[in-house]
């Protein structure tokens, strides 16, 4: 018989507070998808190898499959559902559509969250550096060129806050 206690945690996701009673081994990714029904964050490998589950946690991009939900008690999280302002898309989301930066769309939430985190980090200056620092986010459709074009456009525009 299982005797693991449920843990009470609080997560602020997309500016909304959620109280959760959760088993300690539930990943942040599964908590978002299965408990909070925020399925925009994707599971591609569950091993930190593909980047599809990237979210912004306390200002930094993280792989939500490699974090347990209980470790993020009290954290402020932005998922893809919180990137747009209502129906007004973020410039990066608009740029993704304009540059055809996705095909199947499954890696897209992770690419966008990762790019927002990368732009905040401020380390990448050139296109080559952006490519390097986005390389943790796989795209199997091969929409890579459009993804980097979209990020570069927003980076140059400077309106990525």
């Amino acid at each position: 018989m299982r005797s693991s206690p449920l843990w009470s945690i609080m997560l602020t996701v997309n500016r909304k507070d959620y109280e959760l009673e959760i088993l300690p081994w539930v990943s942040l990714l599964d908590a978002l998808r299965d408990r909070l029904k925020l399925t925009g964050t994707k599971k591609g490998c569950d091993h930190g190898q593909c980047g599809a589950c990237t979210v912004i946690c306390d200002g930094q991009r993280i792989l939500s499959c490699l974090s347990l939900a209980v470790m993020k008690n009290g954290s402020e999280i932005t998922t893809i559902e919180g990137v747009a302002n209502g129906s007004e898309l973020h410039p990066l989301q608009k740029a993704f559509i304009e540059h055809d930066a996705f095909q199947c769309g499954y890696c897209t939430p992770g690419q966008i969250c990762s790019a927002l985190g990368m732009l905040t980090e401020g380390k990448a200056q050139t296109r080559e550096e952006v490519k390097e620092l986005m390389s943790g986010n796989l795209c199997r459709c091969g929409a890579n060129a459009g993804i980097i074009d979209a990020i570069m456009e927003v980076k140059k525009g400077g309106d990525h806050e």
Binding site: L38, T39, G40, T41, K42, T79, I80, E81, V83, A84, L89, Q93, F96, I97, E98, D100, F102, G105, Y106, T108, P109, I112
Partner: peptide, 15 residues
């Protein structure tokens, strides 16, 4: 541009 673009960049597209 892809007509389902909004759904895919906002996480609304359901798989």
């Amino acid at each position: 541009s892809r007509l389902e673009g909004f759904e895919k960049v906002t996480g609304n597209a359901k798989y």
